[in-house]
Design a protein around this nucleic acid. Structure first.
Lengths: 193, 193, 193, 193
DNA sequence: AATGAATGAGGCTTCATTCAT
DNA sequence: TATGAATGAAGCCTCATTCAT
């Protein structure tokens, strides 16, 4: 599903694409800009990707790469799994700042259903993984029982997304990991049984 | 500041612009698309707005129009003010569904600093209004004292934004007002002293 | 031939047209610019002139208005006639500076044969008037006999045109009348028998 | 300074641009007209020049190419230098007739300060070169001493410009070189000590 | 694996002009 | 005598993509 076998050049292109999108929206992700930033000509891009659409899709799929394993490995851990997942969002973005401006920006890719579906399916995958963990955490008595899962998901991921967006909009003006830890502390306070 | 005196045609244009943007991102907001959807020719647009930038900026400013008064009128009410503000977000969007796809989508307007600054200043205005109310709510003992304002803001507006985004991405598949009420109940539970 | 009966508004339009052309070439002479500078709307212009072409042609014809009588009245005076004609060119322009940038700029109006023919016919009319005077001046022994008329015309009008152009390009940085007198002195020196 | 390294296509474009301008003024120099006359599409132009402005500026700079060396090589020759310079103007234009309609048409480029400055600086360069030669010619006793340089410049270049303009306006109806020789003879007569 | 040259479609905008009021 | 609203044509330019080399 997730195409992982990328050549060196392909990785460079995806990386540049991410940076361009983070800097100026998809409007800024043009073949010309890509080529210019890579120091090659436009037709050269087409040696590495069939067309622009493939570039965008590969870029979106790569949002996951780092985060996915994390999810799989913690899905049966209850509240510590939730914590690990939440904090992994922050470290993923902190390690690759441009992600802050696109990771949760489903609207950026509205123009092509194919793109937005990819992103929405990512969101759903996360939601399902969190569901398992949160239900266990409720069983374990670590998280209050009087709020159903869908709402719990919003109470947790809403602030996580907002913090990441604020970090992006502020151009990384604060320490995301630290503020992320604080956020998690606050979440624990408000959600404990 | 907020330009409110729009002619009938200007309102039509802004309305169409909002719909186009909601449907396919700013990529979809072209003079040609505008003209086509309005049933006029492209040059005709320029009788009503100096250029595209003015259209986008007027559109962004109009995100506020309905919501602004609400904020002003409740800014000294403590927790009921917070409740009114939060719920007003849901009714604003429910009354104008395309807003769901653009209201909190700062990334959409990344390509033009002028646009994103407008949106960010809106976000700050909201934050400041909420600050007054939340501090009062803490004084009143309606909201817990062990979380500082910045984080409180994220705990509240994060889920609000996410719910609205989900409603937009689902194409209004659920009742936003009802789910919004539920969200507020959950927030009250988790944030009370 | 030369349309002299212009209404007040028509005179204003022609005057504005001249100023616009002088400031930025015919590219700058647009109906919109005209209307804006006159404080009226574009369609209003068409109450006063059938179309833009009529405006340009009237403007070109008006280059003459002031100068024409001069020519007629001096055409049988020999060298003093030449002097009067030459100096009248300088005072015409000094009294209406924008003329400096269009009066001898046949190229400006190249895009419409109708326009350039108008200007060329003006040049010819001047040439014919000067011919009478110069031949008399040669007969009178006031001007050398060893140069035929066509060349004499160039030796006189070439410097006159260039001085006026320099004055225009310099934005009236020097006193045209004074420099014009000096030029005439130099011409007399070089052309006397 | 003067960009001389033009590709074959660039030369074609500049050449076409010159012809279009000569035929109908800058109004006639449009990307569309250029493309049409070159038998390519409009975007193709942009492979060879960044934008229209670069085309116009390159065209203007190229007015010089042929003439420049001449100036340099004769600048210390006194009256024979002046003669060579003047006659080189005629042969430059005769070899490239469209130049007649643009070479001395500073007004054509009034709409863009950048363009007119280029042309004015050319005029000044010529003037300075001529200054050296004319002063030497006065020292040598070849040119009268009772007229100062600025006026001498007008007495010489005024007629030269006018003859070239007449040749252009007449569509090369006479032999420019011959008439140019005659003009020089007349100039020598009138300017000799 | 890359380039130079080109293209059709479309982007925003201005032009002169018209028409109903 | 003027305006508001509109239009077809054209202006410059960028887009993703292709093709021959």
């Amino acid at each position: 599903m997730v195409k992982v076998n990328l050549t060196k050049r392909q990785k460079e292109i995806i990386d540049t694409a991410l940076n361009l999108t983070a800097k100026g929206g998809i409007q800024n992700l043009t073949i010309r800009n890509l080529a210019e930033n890579l120091g090659i000509t436009e037709p050269a891009i087409y040696r590495h990707f069939k067309n622009k659409s493939e570039i965008v899709k590969t870029m979106i799929k790569n949002f996951e790469v780092a985060g996915n394993q994390k999810i799989a490995s913690v899905s049966n851990e209850g509240i510590t799994g939730v914590e690990k997942f939440v904090k992994s969002r922050f470290s993923l973005v902190a390690a690759n700042p441009p992600l802050a401006k696109v990771l949760f920006s489903e609207e950026l890719f509205m123009d092509e259903p194919e793109y937005s579906e990819l992103l929405i399916s990512m969101m759903h995958k996360h939601k399902n993984s969190l569901k398992v963990m949160l239900l266990k955490a409720q069983e374990d008595g670590d998280i209050r029982n009087d709020i159903e899962f869908d709402m719990l998901f919003r109470l947790i991921m809403g602030p996580v997304r907002l913090l990441i967006k604020q970090w992006g909009l502020s151009n990384a003006a604060f320490n995301l990991i630290e503020k992320g830890d604080l956020l998690w502390e606050s979440l624990k306070k408000t959600l404990k049984s």
